[in-house]
Amino acid sequence: MQLMVKYMLSITALSKQFGQHQILTKLHLEIAEGEVFGLLGPNGAGKTTLIRIIMGLIKPDGGDVLLFGKYRPGSIEARRLIGYMPQQHSVYPGLSVLENVLFFGRMYRMQDADLHQRAVDILQMVELEHRKNDLVANLSGGMIRRVMLATALVHRPRLLILDEPTAGVDPLLRIKFWDWFANMVESGTSIIVTTHNISEAERCRNVVFLRNGQKLEQGTPQELMSSYHADNLEAAFVEATRSRAGNENNGALS
């Protein structure tokens, strides 16, 4: 049984700038363990930059990130506990489905006996067991997405970070993905998922709206919809963006 910490991820005053572009501006964010958390916002809101900082791939200009209450991004401990599924098709096309899963399991130092059983289970989950010996190069886009999920999950991460996991995925498979996310949370994996397809994020426990590297709102989808009198999350997001823009204008006038 893993010890539950209050916040799986605490982000304080995080800033990042690329050249002239301010990507993240003094962002504060706290994410609890044991849920699907949605990082929502339009393209260019800073979602991917935030994720890359959490993964330790880039260093922030200012602010702090703490994982599981004690680990810094990029530390060996944090890296072991996180699973990552990037936006691109980043698996090896020259390897078979199973070989890809085994390879990434080995990169997380899994022992062979455990790894082989886990690979079979995980491929069953993503419904690719019948294609396990096919080269990834011969698979469709949706299948490659599933292989990516399997390779990100194989080492039983405590936190799974998914960057636009359903981009370019057909609606039926998208529903399946969200079902799998729910199952994973039940079996003890927390999930942070980014998407610019805001309506699908209604299945998250909590979401944050990001825009221009700043937090617009944070709460459960229901809370956000009712506070903006919207009947779906997308409408709530549009409303939140408008009212923030209005506030900024008022501020400028006064």
């Binding site: 993964m55 330790g56 791939l57 060996i76 890296r79 072991r80 996180i82 990552y84 990037p86 936006q87 691109q88 098709h89 980043s90 698996v91 090896y92 990434f104 990169m107 997380y108 130092r109 390779t151």
Partner: peptide, 13 residues
């Protein structure tokens, strides 16, 4: 370019 190197860097490698 495929991002697999990034995934290795994210793993404890």
């Amino acid at each position: 370019v495929n991002g697999t190197l990034e995934r290795l860097m994210v793993a404890p490698v």
